[in-house]
Write a protein that binds this DNA or RNA. Structure first.
Lengths: 183, 183
DNA sequence: ATGTGCATGTAACTGGTTACATGATTCG
DNA sequence: CGAATCATGTAACCAGTTACATGCACAT
């Protein structure tokens, strides 16, 4: 179901073929995973049946014809409903990246809400991991310690980015409460 | 299948119940996702059938009895085979975190290989994203730009962490070639 | 000639999730 | 008195992957 909305968001920018979508998404594969054709084409057909996308067949001389997909009004509405309804905070990195990628179909305030929710969540995970690193008997447990340190490094980078993005976006910092990052 | 090996790795440290495993993994949920009981318990039973784990039933007075799972020799062997065989570089963040978490079942040199592979991969993604940010007409495409900037921030943090971890680990930096991070 | 990129699809499988069923204990 | 935590499980479902099938163009 995720894939459906991601496709929808991508072809909102510009019409694309299945192959295009795959290539495009490959660049984000390490963050959100890129879909296989076996999932992609059926998803496009499902969207077509639902009336959320339309297709333009581009025949090529004696090659298989390309199929350019575009979003319909119904598709746009469906996507927007899904994005704004989708639960914040995003507890998975993948979900958050997906929503960032789809930010164009979201109103600036709604985007802000999503980002602030994510910020709170990541800040929380951050302190959780710090606590785990501090308290547990980790000397024996190299794997756990590494995973925690790695996670912490990523979480801190994400917090920094989120703060920057939130500041760059709307001017007003609103929800500043328990945000001291005491390392 | 992933879940099976993750479970195996966790109970290698200390015997755990299904519930324990779930709680433990919740802390990493934002990075690797935490399994539901509907996936966890069947996985434990599958491991039991395969002879990779053994179970000790701890009856509690008139409560449902807890089941403590431990790894068998066969399980250890299976896990080690899987980890060392698993393809490097890890193209997904989730896969890499999982392997970090399981690092205790891996020889130091093998761990190093995994980390170096990951480093190369992330460095590559890094330059890919920088190129995308530099060249494409991004003014119109807020979502894409944000996703790229976010990805880049995470990738850079990961590179920094990997370099630190690799330096801390074995002393010798071996594979230094095209590693200038020119921002 | 062999492989890689373009381009679309189907069928079988599977690794999970969701929802349900059960029940004691403890905390607010 | 209701909610959360502890604790285990089953059945239905489904969103994906893997492997297969096809075929042209272009580079090595």
């Amino acid at each position: 179901m995720n894939l459906r909305y991601l496709i929808l968001g991508l072809i909102t920018r510009r019409p694309m073929t299945g192959y295009d979508i795959r290539s495009y998404l490959k660049g984000f594969g390490w963050l959100i995973g890129s879909p296989s054709f076996g999932g992609l084409y059926p998803a496009l057909n499902a969207l077509l049946e639902a009336g959320w996308v339309s297709v333009e067949v581009l025949p090529r001389t004696d090659k298989a014809s390309r199929k350019l997909y575009s979003v319909t009004e119904a598709g746009k509405a469906g996507l927007e409903a899904w994005i704004s309804e989708s639960a914040t905070p995003f507890t998975s990195l993948k979900a958050f990246v997906m929503h960032l990628l789809l930010a164009d179909s979201l109103s600036p305030p709604a985007l802000r809400v999503h980002m602030e929710g994510r910020r709170r969540y990541v800040a929380d995970r951050c302190s959780g991991m710090r606590a785990a690193l501090a308290t547990e008997g980790l000397g024996d447990d190299r794997g756990l310690r590494m995973a925690l340190e790695y996670g912490l490094a990523l979480a801190e980078a994400e917090l920094a980015w989120l703060d920057g993005a939130l500041a760059a976006e709307g001017a007003g910092p609103e929800s500043r409460e328990s945000e001291e990052e005491s390392l």
